[in-house]
Amino acid sequence: MSPTSSRDASQPRLDGEARATAPDRVSARMPASAGEPAIAYPVKQPFTWWTRRRGYLLYMLREFTAVGIAAWMLLFLVQLARMRQGAAGYQPLGGPLFVAISIVCLALALWHSYTFLSLAGLFMRIPLGDRTVPARLIARAMFGALAVVTVAIAGLLIWGGA
């Protein structure tokens, strides 16, 4: 139906009306008559929707990185709590299991860093004359900064233990 056609002004404009003109494609949101309210049916996805595509899986993995990081921080809190036992009772976390857990958590933390800093070029707009700094350059600068900060913090942590 064209917008200029002779329509009754009291008749509401309905969502999906254009698709409803073909009898076999009636929208589920389309009310039977103009007097009835439009019905919205919630879309229910199966719990495993994220296993359907590799991109969805990587998205969920990215979200899961926060769990790994927080889990490692809980272990660090345990170590902080052990400090209260004094010099004689203090024992830092160690052993193959702790190292294995840390390696997994490190991989998740690096995945978070990679995915989030890669986005920096998309949401940062740095004006440079008439144009803006290219997104790829911003992302590279972020990764460079990550390397510098990592080396600096690692140096301080090692220096503190020397």
């Binding site: 990081i69 857990i101 840390s102 958590c105 860093s113 690692a154 942590l157």
Partner: peptide
């Protein structure tokens, strides 16, 4: 920026 260094060194 700061989490990977801690897990790498301390963990």
């Amino acid at each position: 920026f700061i989490v990977p260094a801690h897990i790498l060194i301390q963990g």
